[in-house]
Design a protein around this nucleic acid. Structure first.
Lengths: 235, 235
DNA sequence: AAGTGGTCTAGACCACTTC
DNA sequence: AAGTGGTCTAGACCACTTT
């Protein structure tokens, strides 16, 4: 029947023993040969199980010594952040070529005075403004049509067509910032307090910054969420 | 010499071809047998290489069809959030047993009126207050010494001794909140605007919430940072 | 020397997809 | 029927750690 692969069943069994506390942090597991004998299978198969648990961060292999249960990593979180949720609309406010301020110049490693393309958008949910964002792209002569870039609502997607999208990654920072006047007018017409801001820097595999985005979240936007640590176990 | 394992070299080569755009999203890679012949090795070894790339999210295997280059996942971020950085001190303000408000009662799935242990702390950096946090733990008769819990500066660690720490995970939410009076007195003595707040809920493998923490960050705290997507490639 | 994990091979059978 | 990925085996050699 092969309802479940052997190596999956062994991994499930060992994982359960670890979670139940049968093996605890810094304990060593039986050796590969012992496990192969215990489960009545080959060494290759138990290795496959152990590699699964190693990839989950539960155990660690040390050559010549054995497999050891690892301490949990509760400080590491996974966050999903997308620009567009369902039932949301974008409205472009402005697309222009400007000389950016110090923040953008430094983020994109620009020469002083080098112009950028800026796209400013309003994000609406049920006709209420929930966010405002600005994207900055270094301006180069002969850049393809700006309209082309604007069809992408997700920030890094606009680069995917020009670069090999897999060779990009994003560095995000979340902070509290006092919005400039034109933003506070939109997002907090009365009380002009600091806002939750998500800054994103798009970087190539060669560490070259190629795009910078600022997104101001209104109080209606909702919280940003993330999950730790050994979440991958829960399946 | 075995300077590098064969399967590592093959994975590096294939990864480079993908990042360079030689294979693009939805392209299929050569089959395992073709790759084994091309690299002059066994099928098992090229499988090991391909599994590496699959774990990185670069490709995906489809039985009977082949390996296909995956689109990037730029919406997924990894965040590191630790309570204590270097050069920081904690000062306990209060440890008590109280009846919590609605927020904590709901987060911890408590019966109305069920008491909790609360620990309130001040976090200082170079003698400036940078954060304030509160931790809530359901109170049960015969709970071990509260002092025992207080030796842990990282939130989930305090449970590690009572539960099998690996069977826990944390759900985090980041938002803007108007602090209560006793917090605003500490963190923003003059301008009493909303603060960046990190809420964390500790949950067991059985989805039972067992701890709730609120951490208010002052404007001196600095930004929270995260990295996307195909970051694992950069090594 | 003995035991551990790390790598690699040649071959086998299976389940799935395509022709 | 032929090709693909998924699983598994039995055996080999290597590098490292412990005794």
């Amino acid at each position: 029947m092969m309802a479940q692969a052997i190596y999956i069943r062994i991994a499930d069994d060992l994982r359960q023993r670890i979670l139940n506390g049968e093996y605890r942090t810094d304990d060593s597991l039986p050796s590969e040969n012992e496990l192969a004998a215990a489960y009545g299978t080959s060494r290759v198969t138990v290795r496959k199980s152990l590699n699964l648990l190693e990839n989950e961060g539960l155990i660690r292999a040390r050559r010549g010594k054995g497999y050891f249960v690892q301490p949990p990593r509760h400080a590491q979180y996974t966050m999903f952040f997308v620009d567009s949720r369902r039932e949301e609309r974008f409205r472009y406010q402005e697309v222009n070529i400007v000389t950016p301020g110090r923040e953008v110049t430094e983020a994109l490693h620009l020469r002083d005075g080098q112009p950028v393309i800026v796209a400013r958008r309003i994000q609406e949910r049920e006709s209420r403004i929930v966010a405002y964002d600005e994207k900055y792209i270094p301006y180069e002569r002969g850049v393809p049509s700006i309209e082309f870039e604007l069809q992408f609502s997700e920030f890094p997607d606009m680069f995917a067509a020009r670069f090999t999208s897999l060779s990009l990654h994003t560095e995000m920072s979340i902070a509290l910032e006092a919005p400039p006047l034109h933003v506070s007018k939109l997002l907090c017409p009365e009380t002009c307090s600091p806002l939750l801001v998500v800054n994103r820097l798009i970087v190539t595999a060669e560490d070259q910054p190629i795009g910078y985005g600022k997104k101001y979240l209104s109080s209606d936007y909702g919280p940003l969420t993330a999950v730790s640590g050994n979440y991958s176990i829960r399946g």
